[in-house]
Simulated assay, not measured.
Amino acid sequence: MSTPITALLARGAGGLPPATPVDFARLRLPASPNTCLAAPPGAHPEAQISVPPLPVDAATAWPVLRGLGDGMPRVFRYGEWPERRQMQWVARSALMNYPDIVAAELVPGPAGAGLFLYSRSLFGWSDLGVNRKRVESWLAALDAALRRR
């Protein structure tokens, strides 16, 4: 059984319930300020960051997105749904080992792939901007990886 204590004591994705895909069309952000959602322009009314179309189509971007968290400190794969082109990772804080969930999904678009990127804390009310900083850094990392391919 997963409890907050087991989630904090575990490593990687341990101690967390099984991952389930995020339905970005129905996603409603919580009242707490410990989340950040990036989405294609006009794709979600609560998005805090607008992501212009990627310079490639979704099929080309998918393998790059799948590997995005690999090698990042304290980031572990959590779930994958290739048919949706959606990935999830657990990102653990350095000091307290708090687990945050990062979900990303590629959607087809006329000018290139659209990207949803959502980072959320599982515990607490405020994250002091950690999830927004994470989303911004992951967007930059994806952009750099796509340019290298």
Rank of each mutant, 00 (worst) to 15 (best):
M1C: 06
T3A: 03
T3I: 02
T3W: 00
P4M: 07
I5H: 10
A10R: 06
G12Y: 06
G12H: 11
A13C: 08
G15C: 08
L16W: 07
L16G: 08
L16E: 08
P17E: 14
P18E: 09
A19P: 02
T20E: 15
P21S: 08
V22P: 10
A25K: 10
A25F: 00
P30E: 13
A31G: 13
A31S: 14
P33R: 05
N34L: 10
N34A: 15
T35G: 05
T35H: 15
A38S: 01
A39L: 02
A39V: 00
P41E: 12
G42T: 11
G42L: 11
P45N: 10
P45K: 09
E46P: 12
A47P: 05
A47S: 08
S50I: 03
V51T: 11
P52Q: 09
P52R: 11
L54F: 03
P55A: 01
V56A: 01
D57S: 09
A58P: 01
A59D: 15
A59W: 00
A61G: 02
P63Y: 04
L65D: 00
R66W: 02
R66D: 01
G67Y: 04
G67R: 13
G71K: 02
G71F: 10
G71H: 09
G71R: 09
G71Q: 05
V75A: 12
V75T: 14
F76W: 15
G79N: 04
G79I: 05
P82F: 12
P82M: 08
P82V: 03
M87N: 03
V90D: 02
A91T: 10
A91S: 15
A91R: 08
A91G: 13
R92C: 02
R92M: 09
R92S: 03
S93I: 10
S93Q: 05
A94D: 12
A94P: 04
L95M: 14
L95D: 11
Y98M: 14
Y98V: 12
I101R: 06
I101D: 04
A103H: 13
E105P: 09
L106I: 07
G109Y: 02
P110T: 15
A113W: 01
A113P: 02
A113Q: 03
G114A: 00
G114W: 01
L115P: 09
F116V: 00
R120T: 14
L122I: 15
G124R: 08
G129S: 14
V130W: 09
V130G: 06
R132I: 05
K133H: 14
R134N: 04
V135W: 11
V135G: 07
V135C: 09
V135R: 08
V135D: 03
V135M: 02
E136D: 13
E136A: 11
W138T: 00
W138I: 02
L139S: 10
A141V: 07
A141D: 06
R147K: 15
R147L: 13
R148D: 15
R148A: 15
R148C: 07
R148H: 14
R149W: 12
R149Q: 15
